[in-house]
């Protein structure tokens, strides 16, 4: 572990420029007393803006809990979470919902789309929920990037799994959020479709300047990121920049389960 590059513990809750989201001593415990399980153990981490970060770790390592907490979907037992300079842990349901709608994009593993809405309506869903008009130019660019221009009026049931995930990526991008969270976004896809999605995500960061944090257990998927954070037993145990699938796999082996 001596070779890893662990971030210095930040004690100052104020967010620094260039950081899109931050967890500060984030702790999540289930149950109490002897049976208590610690899912997150005082994790402190910054997710830098305009960067593609992957979170890895064996099942039960707390990677999903970390992402869900930072994304405002789960609450912490103690600690703080910031999106931009907003203290997520202090928000009530209404504000939290608005935060997710306006500042966060989501790509889930499956069931990403509302079956009764067509592709375009799904892409613009967070915007229309907010009662906002999409930025036409940006929307065109996003739709162009994910290659959905001729599928916009299709309902999810008329799209392939890969196409559905592309719609999900487009939706996450459409509102120009401060940060996009992906929860195993390619977990249900074959490798070719998965690669396509990961490529879109990488381009979204490199070409469109977006910020993405992705949970995955697939070293190949993680290799698309610029930075990989490894979690085990609720703690950050390692970090890797400019990963390749081999290096990621190597690291995983080191503290394998």
């Amino acid at each position: 572990m001596s070779t890893t590059l662990i971030e210095p513990i930040a004690t100052d809750p104020a967010i620094r420029p260039g950081v899109a989201a931050r967890a500060l001593a984030a702790t999540k415990r289930y149950g109490s007393g002897d049976t208590a399980v610690t899912a997150l153990d005082a994790v402190t981490v910054d997710f830098r803006a305009h960067e593609f970060t992957a979170i890895m770790g064996p099942s039960g390592s707390g990677k999903s809990t970390l992402m869900h907490s930072v994304a405002g979907l789960d609450t912490l037992t103690s600690g703080q979470v910031f999106i931009g300079d907003t203290d997520v842990s202090s928000l009530d349901d209404k504000r939290l919902t608005k935060l997710r709608r306006d500042k966060i994009g989501f790509i889930f593993q499956a069931f990403n789309l509302v079956p009764t809405l067509n592709a375009l309506e799904n892409i613009t869903l967070p915007l229309s929920l907010a009662g906002r008009k999409p930025d036409a130019e940006w929307l065109d660019l996003v739709v162009e990037t994910v290659g959905l221009a001729n599928r916009l009026s299709h309902r999810p049931s008329e799209l392939s799994g890969g196409q559905q995930q592309r719609v999900a990526v487009a939706r996450a991008l459409a509102s120009k959020p401060e940060i996009i969270f992906g929860d195993e976004p390619t977990g249900n896809l074959d490798s070719r479709a998965g690669a396509e999605i990961l490529d879109f995500m990488r381009r979204a960061v490199r070409e469109l300047g977006q910020t993405i944090v992705m949970v995955t257990h697939d070293p190949v998927a993680a290799s698309y990121a610029q930075r990989v954070i490894f979690l085990a037993d609720g703690r950050i145990v390692d970090e890797l920049t400019e990963p390749t699938p081999e290096r990621v796999l190597d690291r995983l082996m080191t503290f394998g389960d």
């Binding site: 209404k94 919902t97 608005k98 997710r100 889930f108 929920l129």
Partner: peptide, 16 residues
């Protein structure tokens, strides 16, 4: 359930 969860996740308020 999942659809409603999704809607809430991407920003549908309780009132909506």
């Amino acid at each position: 359930t999942r659809e409603l969860g999704l809607l809430r996740a991407v920003g549908m308020t309780r009132t909506q």
